[in-house]
Design a binder for these strands. Sequence first.
RNA 1: GCGGUAUUGGUGAAGUGAUUAACACGCCAGAUUGUGGCUCUGGUAUGCGUGGGUUUGAUUCCCACAUACCGCCCCA
Length: 417
Amino acid sequence: MIQRPKGTLDVYGTDGTIYNYIYNSAQEIMSGYNFEFIKIPTFEETSLFYRGVGEGTDIVNKETYDFVDKGERKMTLRPEFTAGVIRSYIENKMYADNSVKKLWYFGSAFRYERPQSGRYREFTQFGVEVLGVRNAFMDAEVISLAYRFLSGLGITNMKVKLNTLGDKESRQNYRDVLYDYLKKDYDSLCDTCKDRLERNPLRILDCKYDNERDYIKNAPKTLDYLNDESKKYFDEVKEALECLDIPYIVDSSLVRGLDYYSDTVFEIICDYEELGKANTICAGGRYDGLVELLDGPKTPGIGFAMGLERIIIMLKEMEAFVPSERLHSFVMNLDGSSLAYQIVDDLRSSGFSCEIDYTGKTMKGLWKLVDKYNPTYVIIIGEDEVKGDYVTVKDNDTKEEVKVKISELLDYFNMNL
RNA sequence: GCGGUAUUGGUGAAGUGAUUAACACGCCAGAUUGUGGCUCUGGUAUGCGUGGGUUUGAUUCCCACAUACCGCCCCA
């Protein structure tokens, strides 16, 4: 038997309902915030991700799905969306009118990882990118958008972690200081951190072993090495968040794994047992150098991405209420006449959701289907009805039955909306 | 990529080196008639992830592979 590829998911049943609910909610909130939808290719030239995401990151070093196409082009299944969206922004000259571009996306991303719950090789991301503005209120708005969206879905136990990496100058400055500081204590670092020192010293602050040691706890903090501009900006972002009433905690160990971030970075985590260590459901930040890095004009940007699968796991565990439309009617076809199918077709064409049995169930089986679908109405069509040119409409809540002429059925339902 | 645990029907699962693989839910049929959700009765895995091996005999023991899950790494 052929199984699905490792780390992929069949989403159906309750999961499918929740998936759709999240997607619909995303569409709704994005139009409220006046974002434009963008759909980009599932795969791009490999070099885009090397340059965009960063040569030193694990994502491009060992987690990409690469292939060479028949034209011998090196391609990569997108491991995230930001690089592709920025490529599209530049390629389509969306910067031309000097306006602020607010884009949102939704779709699969791919990473060649060892799967676990909440961690898949193909997973779904919903995210936004805002290009062309560097303003603390925009940073706050992007964070609040993510926060409001998640709480709108019914998620409650969230924490917003916030940090700043500073601008390019502050960042480089800090990195050098930190490197020197850690280098002095190189021998007592854990093995992984020894590797990390050269590649990405910031991550050492995040290490759960070394993290516990005073030497690391006392390491220089990003905040102490910000230049005045970056410091001021961070203060403004915090102020703006307070203004929008978004609770947050500053976490100086928060560093993101992608190279392009600068200044504001944030994560929304959710403590839920089922998520285990994969409890980051949303992450993002500012990337003022990225457009330039990808050969576009100097343009500031900020965005976030969230993982649908993790949200689904949570909503399912929380047994959160996922609204769904109630089935309008179930047509009970007792004599097998084609009339029943015509009526179903008429109802559907008029916008009434409708179901009928095709498997020749017995009376009891049909009523069991009614229980399962729980429609508002049951429409009974039997011998007597066909002869008399009427149907019996049973209100499934009050159990009252009325006879309705077939020609008047649609009017009957329209009047009872 | 490294280390560990697991894999029995549609689902949750019990179980044993050897006659019919427990139980529960679900599903199907019947009691039940053109009116269901309750109850009762019966049916429902020629099969225990896949491929090998040990054995008189393997779902059970051994090996390999696959997948899921947990930890590391990393991340949404």
